[in-house]
Design a protein around this nucleic acid. Structure first.
Length: 270
DNA sequence: CGCCCTTTGAAGTTC
DNA sequence: GAACTTCAAAGGGCG
């Protein structure tokens, strides 16, 4: 449900022209991000506000104004979670946070107007909290597990490709009228390879900054923290697929490609 | 209901 | 240090 509205927001923003002179888009990002402000600026929408609004289709102009006035010193990180209207030509040069669930501290943020947990911060089960009547059934182990679950999951920062996917997904869906993510992701994977080095470099840089900011905000966090919180498919299959898809990339580019991808390999420039 | 699929990349683990 | 594994997003498919 909310995902559709997110897409609506994406589509909305896709067609929202960059505000002229939008360089004055002070965002409540840490210095790292601020230092990376695009010269032209990009209209940004706080996805956090979007998620917490009962009628989540805010006018972009309002949003930017709200962000201007959001105090930096508060723990309200909603501004980090900003949605950009970046397209291939005008990538969000900022550390986007438009995808950064790990930074969504909606729940438990003191004084936050709408302390509704962001859907991205979920218990490891990926489910909402137990309903009251369920609590009677709790065993000790379960309550322990629930305690664990109450800790908001800090998710991994998105890598370059994930950021690219996040941005381009709506476009691909619109173009292909496909909805199945597996198919969409295949297309996005091919498009990723078709990107020039410079275009990819933008996303690598974005991802690098997201990682840095993530480290600053969660110094003790480790990717291991989330290990085992997701049920995984059988190893055999996964290995099969990874060895097939990840290992011989150069070979694939050269041989078994359906689409002719004239461009470089996918190795990170960094 | 909940995992699978599918992608790339980062980070963790294993040997 | 190479190889392998897990998880980030996403949403339809399917058991």
């Amino acid at each position: 449900m909310y995902k559709e509205t997110v897409y609506s927001a994406f589509n909305l923003l896709m067609h929202y022209p960059p505000a002229s002179g939008a360089g004055q888009h002070p965002q409540p990002q840490p210095p790292l991000h601020k230092a990376n402000q695009p010269p032209h600026g990009v209209p940004q929408l706080s996805l956090y506000e979007h998620f917490n609004s009962p009628h989540p289709t805010p006018a972009p102009a309002d949003i930017s104004q709200k962000q201007v006035h959001r105090p930096l010193q508060t723990p309200d990180l909603s501004g980090f979670y900003s949605l950009t209207s970046g397209s291939m030509g005008q990538l969000p040069h900022t550390v986007s946070w438009f995808t950064h669930p790990s930074l969504m501290l909606g729940s438990g943020v003191p004084g936050h107007p709408a302390a509704i947990p962001h859907p991205a911060i979920v218990p490891p089960s990926g489910k909402q909290e137990l309903q009251p009547f369920d609590r009677n059934l709790k065993t000790q182990a379960e309550s322990k597990a629930e305690k664990e679950a109450k800790k908001p999951t800090i998710k991994k920062p998105l890598n370059a490709f994930m950021l690219y996917m996040k941005e381009m997904r709506a476009k691909v869906i619109a173009e292909c009228t496909l909805k199945e993510s597996a198919a969409i992701n295949q297309i996005l994977g091919r498009r990723w390879h078709a990107l020039s080095r410079e275009e990819q470099a933008k996303y690598y840089e974005l991802a690098r900054k997201e990682r840095q900011l993530h480290m600053q905000l969660y110094p003790g966090w480790s990717a291991r923290d989330n290990y085992g919180k997701k049920k995984r498919r059988s190893r055999e299959k996964h290995q099969e697929s990874t060895t097939e898809t990840n290992w011989p990339r150069e070979l694939k580019d050269g041989n078994g490609q359906e689409e002719s991808l004239s461009t470089s390999s996918s190795s990170s420039p960094a």
